[in-house]
Design a binder for these strands. Structure first.
Lengths: 157, 157
DNA sequence: TCCTATAGTGGGTGCACACCCACTATTTTT
DNA sequence: AAAAATAGTGGGTGTGCACCCACTATAGGA
């Protein structure tokens, strides 16, 4: 993944589209973050799962799947790897033995901290041209857009 | 591509990362745009190529490839399809017969207008929660980030 | 003229991602 | 107790994307 730079000299008509800018800067962000995570053998979903566990506490895989909007079977795989890395542990829910409760281990928390640092670094790099309050502004705007996009049905069929 | 909604309820630690928001909203933007283009049998690169031709005039594929940062062989394929759709035409450069000069046809321009409309619609939908000046603000910020990201070497090896 | 570089083309590869289905274990409903 | 729903697992699929290589035609420099 060498030259994942956005585009050398994009056509003005496209630069006028926020959609386009969003799509490309998003891709860059994702790419850089993924590259960093990759160095640790992780992917974005691992990050998301660790964060979800840290934020919301131990929970069943189904809950993770719902929360993150990922297919249950994919959650299984992600948890498999996190478990293999010693960052989470699985335990049968004694109340409902169908459920598997996933918990972050201390190692997992440490890893998460590392990942958050990486993310911050990427962010620093990516948002370099912006001052502190501009970054805050951007963040606030993105947050609103993101939140709304979550429940606004876009390309419903 | 049914449920490409961002994430039902993302973990706060991630929502605090602009990188994450950028990555996800970007993905949403890209996804919705791609869905629309898909209805017309096109992809994002077709859009980009048409726009580049409209903005910068007829040019050799190599120029397109350089400008858009796409592999020359991929440009060939995109132009193949655009040509088949009657939206661009190829012609050997008489000065340098290695070159193939690509030109937008009137049909291509019309198609591009349609695509720009689609993009605007997506944007309207996605940026619904923002007012006009907030959108402008977001656009300006993104543009700066995007421009800088273009030549800032990110994950250089 | 010979050699090297460049433009375009065709074909193919590996990866990440989103999905989907079949199956087992367990719980809930009737 | 039987039937239906749910949680997790394993395996597999299709798509889009970025990338790379080999080859031909043409151009340009020594």
């Amino acid at each position: 993944m060498r030259a994942m730079e956005p585009t050398p000299a994009a056509p003005p008509s496209l630069l006028g589209l926020s959609t386009y800018l969003l799509s490309l800067t998003g891709k860059t962000a994702r790419g850089r973050l993924a590259a960093r995570l990759g160095e640790r053998g992780l992917r974005l979903w691992h990050f998301a799962v660790l964060a979800a566990l840290a934020d919301f506490g131990a929970q069943a895989q189904r809950a993770l799947s719902d929360r993150l909007g990922v297919d249950p079977s994919d959650i299984t795989k992600v948890v498999d790897q996190l478990e293999a890395a010693g960052q989470v542990s699985r335990a049968r829910d004694t109340a409902d033995r169908r459920r598997v409760v996933v918990t972050v281990t201390p190692a997992g928390r440490a890893a998460l901290r590392g990942l958050l640092d990486e993310a911050a670094a990427v962010q620093d790099e990516l948002l370099a041209p912006l001052g502190p309050d501009e970054r805050a502004q951007l963040h606030a705007l993105l947050l609103r857009v993101f939140t709304a996009a979550g429940d606004t049905r876009g390309g419903e069929d």
